[in-house]
């Protein structure tokens, strides 16, 4: 039987989970900034070269991003005395499971996402992938026995509706002959990101989140570099981007991205997959804020309404601290 915690212990448990909520919210904010900065890098050479196929630039960008993020995270782990933990963890079964999760959430999800956009269009792909927190919550309830209240579910669905509103652009005229294949491709990142979250959370029960995300980013980079780049003929673009101004912008973006991923992993570990994923998709809201200040993004009523809906959803998910006492039915 689980011992009943004293009031002081209860406070400590709730404070810990609340810190996880803060990490979740910050992961969304940093991911919003990451998207805006990566967008800026994509407007620079060599990514704007007209000879490039539509999917090459984003995949090369993702490869560089994850590689440099792995570098930043290694520096963080070295500076906090955890350098040896990376290799030690990689030699364990949970460490290898993280590598598998990295494949799902990294190159596989990203490739599906880009092919989805190409064949089904941005509007449908963004709308389908925005439901990943709901799928992640279902997986977390099944595999991690995570408790999710009805109010939290309403909050998650509200956040997803808000993301639809923010990301929605009317579909371009005409339907691609491969439209339904595009829809299938868009399902790959939706399943990939939700499974990555649940699998990583399972292994973070035993692994330090900072080490798990370091392994995740390094694996993603290696697969991009050794499998995806040769396949799409991206190695030359990769090399020239490394030496260009866009490479420096991606170095900064990767720092922001590694903070976002680190906070996302920490949040899932500390406060549960459902809450962390819901707070993470507030990046749509933060993308508007950073886009407004850093680019020429115009605020439209749709964007503002979407942002308000996301905020309401996020507040619904985190509303009752008492729920944080027992995150799982174990």
């Amino acid at each position: 039987m689980t011992p009943t915690p004293t009031p002081a212990q209860e406070q400590k448990i709730i404070a810990y989970a609340k810190r996880g909520l803060l990490y979740g919210a910050l992961s969304g904010a940093f991911w919003g900034l990451d998207g805006v900065l990566l967008g800026i890098a994509m407007t620079m050479l060599p990514f704007t070269s007209p000879e490039l196929a539509i999917y090459v630039a984003p995949l090369v960008g993702a490869c560089l991003h994850d590689g440099l993020a792995a570098l930043w995270l290694s520096l963080l782990n070295l500076s906090t005395g955890r350098g040896r933990e990376i290799f030690r963890s990689l030699m364990t079964k949970p460490g290898l499971i993280v590598c598998f999760a990295a494949l799902l959430g990294g190159p596989l999800a990203m490739s599906g996402y880009l092919l989805g956009i190409q064949f089904a269009g941005t509007a449908y792909t963004l709308s389908i992938t925005a439901i990943y927190p709901a799928l992640g919550t279902i997986f977390a309830m099944i595999f991690l026995k995570e408790r999710v209240s009805l109010r939290a579910w309403i909050g998650i669905i509200t956040c997803i509706i808000g993301s639809f509103v923010v990301g929605y652009t009317p579909p371009e005229g005409g339907v691609s002959p491969h439209f339904y294949m595009g829809i299938l491709f868009a399902l790959i990142p939706t399943i990939g990101w939700s499974l990555e979250g649940v699998i990583s959370t399972y292994v973070m029960d035993l692994l330090d989140p900072s080490i798990a995300i370091n392994i995740r980013q390094a694996t993603s980079f290696v697969v991009y570099l050794l499998a995806v780049m040769p396949l799409i003929g991206g190695l030359i673009v990769f090399k020239s981007a490394l030496l260009a101004t866009s490479g420096a912008v991606i170095l900064l973006t990767a720092l922001v991205g590694s903070i976002s991923y680190l906070f996302w992993y920490k949040a899932m570990n500390m406060t549960g997959v459902a809450r962390a994923m819901c707070l993470n998709i507030t990046y749509a809201l933060w993308g508007i804020v950073f886009g407004y200040f850093l680019t020429d993004l115009k605020l439209t009523p749709t964007l503002i309404i979407g942002a308000i809906i996301i905020t309401i959803g996020a507040l619904l998910v985190v509303a009752n601290p008492k729920e944080l006492l027992n995150l799982r039915k174990v």
């Binding site: 400590k12 810990y16 989970a17 973070m204 029960d205 989140p209 570990n269 500390m270 995150l327 799982r328």
Partner: peptide, 8 residues
């Protein structure tokens, strides 16, 4: 804290 939150 992490091990306790995970129920281990």
């Amino acid at each position: 804290d992490s091990l306790r939150t995970s129920g281990l």
